[in-house]
Design a binder for these strands. Structure first.
Length: 644
RNA sequence: GCCGGAGUAGCUCAGUGGUAGAGCGAUUCACUCGUAAUGAAUAGGCCAGGGGUUCGACUCCCCUCUCCGGCUCCA
């Protein structure tokens, strides 16, 4: 019986049963057949040599495109494992999937791989690729597979867990063989190893088997593979660009902040320029909170341990809270890891009526969390940080509009800082959680509706919610395409219960309010780190700690330079005069490396005419003889906050 | 916390079981200059910290701290 394939152009063609994708591709065109690495019929991905047995939409897969890259990288992972097993015969191999931008493979070995080992492995991979070994699909019974992989305990474990692994549903196991190497795999693969155009190993790292820290720790080798050498080079260049933007490097370089080891891991000091940047951000945070109807509150850095017991944090996060402290006969105190309980107590300080709601409380709250030593990462993951935190108490009727209000707030905040592309996660009930399932359901539905109506693309992150409620996390895309999780909007029906919060509803019945936790930046520290990397340190005018650098050509122009500075300062700009005895060229260079948005040079002509030479960051040269008033107005205009 | 790598001047990095090095930066002096580096001189080091091995340790071994790449975790 012939099979019918619908081609991408809509044409329906009948082929004899058992035709291979390669033959079909060839019938479309020899060129396409040459580029083809696999095919898709309906939802099924097929090797070029696997007979097609069902009708459906037929598409040829080439190296470019997500499916092609996926197959390329999966094949590269096999070659990696093959190379490792040939050089280290005693190694046991675990799994090796494709990942974003590359692939990895995990191994158990007696000795961790050294960088020389990795070089040797990469060279061996080159040989395997040069030999152009064909990949062959092998089907076998479970028992046969257990026999073939008996030396590899992780493979055995995979085969024994038939349902959720690379094993087909009917009990047969598929594997791919090339030369002496065979690996469990669902496929498809490239036709042969020689079809891998560009591959490179990147690093070795430890990783737990099945991601479980109670299981074996394996050696993971990361690599990357691309359709061409050019693509590979572009990717490596992207990695270097990310490194150049690293906030841990740019921060100290731009004199924003530093991490003195004497202070302790994960703790930063903010230098005057970083302090200014931070002040601007915090001022803007306050401005927006006020605009969106929040009241400001303050809560102390310490609270009795009992409070954290009541809130549930001690039950869920004791390991991440700093140890309790005791003084004399006083009860034990803890440093706060969160601001919520403080705000809850403010709510509870008097009887509340439905007329008081929604009650929105905001605080730039400093918190401390004991992060495990291995996870601290500059400002992105610190042990002491400041949340631009808020808690809104409202009725269930208000939830919908409040959630929208919060999302609007978050987006305004993010847009002000130059982010334009957003994605969201809707995180649902985790395994370790409190509260009735029904409440979770209702809350998740509200959050989903809010996201639907916003039009922001989102995915559901199953089980990723907070222990007290589901949440929306907003991710932004930065200037070089990386995604960062920043803002969070969390729905909470648990703390109100634990603290027995109430309000008098109409008719004087007591009701329990809902609570919305929201952080716009997340943490000021983390947000700063992301901003530094987003802008590569070249902040827009309104954020730049020094907006204008004024350079007198010679000593005799310093007085005029000071007048210019006074003028700019009066107009609300942040300017500084470079009085060093360097050449003009050197001072320009310094201003540019410090990424000041504007440079003003003043010389004889300017003193005589009341003008300045103005050069903006990113411009190749200056504009001479700009009247001071005009320059000032222009700079003031540039320094405006986007949403104001 | 786990697996690996690293720590030499403020920064970027050479160096070796036997007297600690460069460039940039800093300071001082001279230069007074129109858009990415003017010149000279000087200072700057418990070679991350603590133990050991050794006649002798920056170098070899052990512990601690801090950082980097991952894993796990992230209210």
């Amino acid at each position: 019986m012939p099979i019918e394939l619908t081609y991408p152009d809509g044409k329906v063609v009948q082929h004899p049963d058992g035709v291979t994708p390669f033959e079909v591709a060839e019938s479309i065109g020899p060129r396409l057949a040459k580029a083809a690495i696999a095919a898709r019929v309906g939802d099924r991905l097929l090797d070029l040599t696997t007979p097609i047995t069902e009708s459906g939409e037929f598409a040829v897969i080439t190296l470019d495109g997500d499916e092609g890259l996926h197959i390329l990288r999966h094949s590269a992972a096999h070659v990696l494992a093959q190379a490792v097993l040939s050089l280290f015969p005693e190694a046991t191999f675990a799994i090796g999937p494709p990942i974003e931008d590359g692939f990895y493979y995990d191994f158990e070995v007696d000795q961790p791989f050294t960088s020389e080992d990795v070089r040797a492995i990469e060279a061996r991979m080159g040989e395997i690729i040069a030999e152009n070994q064909p990949f062959e699909r092998v089907e076998m019974s479970r028992d046969a597979a257990l026999e073939v992989f008996s030396d590899h305990k992780f493979k055995v474990e995979i085969i024994e867990n038939v349902d959720r692994t690379e094993v087909s549903a009917d009990g047969a196991v598929t594997a791919y063989r090339n030369r002496e190497f065979i690996d469990l795999c669902r496929g498809p693969h490239l036709p042969s190893t020689g079809r891998i155009p560009a591959v490179k190993l990147l690093r070795v790292a430890g990783a737990y088997w099945r991601g479980d820290e109670d299981r074996e720790q394996l050696q993971r080798i990361y690599g990357t593979a691309w359709p061409s050498k050019k693509d590979l080079d572009a990717y490596l260049e992207r990695l270097e660009e990310a490194q150049r933007r690293d906030h841990r490097r740019l921060g100290p370089e731009l004199d924003l902040y530093s991490f003195p080891p004497e202070l302790g891991s994960g703790l930063a000091v903010w230098h005057p320029k970083g302090g200014m940047l931070r002040k601007i951000m915090e001022d803007h945070s306050r401005t927006l909170h006020e605009r969106f109807g929040f009241d400001f509150v303050f809560s102390p850095h310490l609270a009795k341990s009992d409070l954290w017991q009541t809130s549930g944090h001690l039950d869920y996060f004791a390991e991440n809270m700093y140890a309790g402290m005791q003084h004399g006969d006083d009860p034990e105190y803890r440093v706060k890891p969160m601001n919520c309980p403080g705000h809850v107590l403010i709510y509870r300080s008097q009887g509340r009526s439905y007329r008081d709601l929604p009650m929105r409380l905001g605080e730039l709250g400093g918190v401390y969390r004991y992060e495990k030593s291995g996870v601290v990462q500059g400002l992105l993951r610190a042990r002491g940080f400041t949340q631009d935190d808020s808690h809104t108490f409202c009725t269930e009727d208000q939830l919908k509009s409040e959630l929208k209000h919060h999302l609007d707030f978050v987006l305004t905040w993010l847009q002000d800082f130059g982010f334009t592309e957003f994605e969201a996660d809707l995180s649902t009930k985790p395994d370790k959680s409190v509260g009735e399932a029904e409440r979770w359901e209702i809350s998740q539905r509200y959050l989903a509706e809010t996201l639907e109506e916003s039009g922001i693309p989102y995915r559901v992150a199953e089980g990723e919610g907070a222990f007290y409620g589901p949440k929306i996390d907003v991710h932004v895309k930065d200037a070089i395409g990386r995604r960062w999780q920043l803002s969070t909007i969390q729905l909470d029906f648990t703390l109100p219960e634990r603290f027995e919060l109430e309000y008098a509803a109409p008719g004087n019945v007591m009701e329990r309010p809902y609570m919305i936790h929201c952080a716009k930046a997340g943490s000021i520290e983390r947000f700063t780190g992301v901003l530094v990397e987003h802008y590569a340190g070249a902040f827009p005018m309104w954020l730049a700690p020094v907006q204008v650098s004024i350079i007198p050509v010679a000593d005799r122009h310093e007085e005029y330079a000071e007048q210019v500075k006074a003028r700019l300062t009066d107009a609300g700009l942040r300017a500084e005069v470079d009085r060093s005895s360097e050449t003009v060229g050197d001072k320009i260079r310094l201003a540019l490396t410090q990424k000041h948005p504007a440079v003003i040079v003043v010389g004889d002509d300017d003193v005589a005419d009341g003008t300045v030479g103005l050069r903006l960051y990113g411009e190749e040269s200056d504009t001479r003889g700009v009247p001071l008033i005009e320059a000032t107005n222009r700079l003031v205009e540039m320094a405006r906050v986007p949403s104001e």
